[in-house]
Amino acid sequence: MISLHQVSKSYETPAGKFSALRDIDLEIDRGEFVGVVGKSGSGKSTLLNMVAGIDRPSSGSVGVAGTAIHGLSENKLAVWRGRNVGFVFQFFQLLPTLTAAENVMLPMDFSKSFPFRERRKRALALLERVAVGAHADKLPATLSGGEQQRVAIARALANEPSLVLADEPTGNLDSVTATAILDLFRDMANQGTTVVIATHEADIARVIDRRIEISDGKIRPSSV
């Protein structure tokens, strides 16, 4: 499903060159639930960005579901991402002027993956699935953090992606809500969706299939 070969990423900073990833080789299978753990600044978000096509490697190749995404243009990447990847952010990043249902409909509108009339119906079903159906027509500002993250997960599932990536999805939630959110990801993986979560919290062992530990831009061999 995901194949990274000799992926490196470095940034030019005022303090000099900073290597975020170094010679990463990684294979993740379809339906696998993988947790990428590491300290802040270890390179886990960069790794997720590489897989999502949000960032490009300085060297190496990234293949997702048979597509070499490192060679795609920004626009082609956006189209590919809309159809194949669901992304969940730490701070939810719901668009504040759209209701919960509309936030979920947004990727469908971008990708035109479902007929226009079906989009709201599907958005409501997804919100029901993540247990916030009652809040479908509320604006994000009126929802709690946990509810917002559930809406964000529903949005990530909007186009039935084969891959869901989540960057610190529970980092801004209390422990009870975090557990419920992780369970949702587990359900997704059980239904065949590949799920990759970046987190600095070590306590996710009970839900994930595989744990990848990253430190100083390198994957610890023992963790793969």
Partner: peptide
């Protein structure tokens, strides 16, 4: 800017 980033991340093209 960040909203634009989010929209791009969930599949929005620049033109959209």
């Amino acid at each position: 800017v960040r909203q634009i980033g989010v929209m791009k991340a969930i599949g929005g093209t620049r033109w959209q």
